[in-house]
Amino acid sequence: MIPITHYLILSAMLFAIGVTGVIISRNLIIMFMSIEVMLNAANLAIIAFSRSLNLMDGHVFVFLVMAVAAAEAAVGLAIIINLFRNRESINADTFSLMKR
């Protein structure tokens, strides 16, 4: 049986990749995908704990997170499509209206 640390290290790595992706990428789609990676990293950690502790709670949480992620993906993609329609760009740096 694979010890829990392995799962956690994988999860941490995935999370780090996700964070790095959000920070360094300018492309909104990439940023969005990175966020999904981060979410799934969290999911992985949760499920690993759930399995090793023999509790069902984690599974429930993960389902919840997946449902939220799906909804968020729908909304997020809709926003991105609208942004693109209006600005012909999905470069995050062009959307800095709050700075004058």
Binding site: V19, V22, I23, I24, R26, M31, A92, D93, F95, S96, L97, M98, K99
Partner: peptide
Amino acid sequence: MQTGNMRTYVTVFL
């Protein structure tokens, strides 16, 4: 402090 640049916010958040 409000640059309007999302990546800056994320970095600070992190």
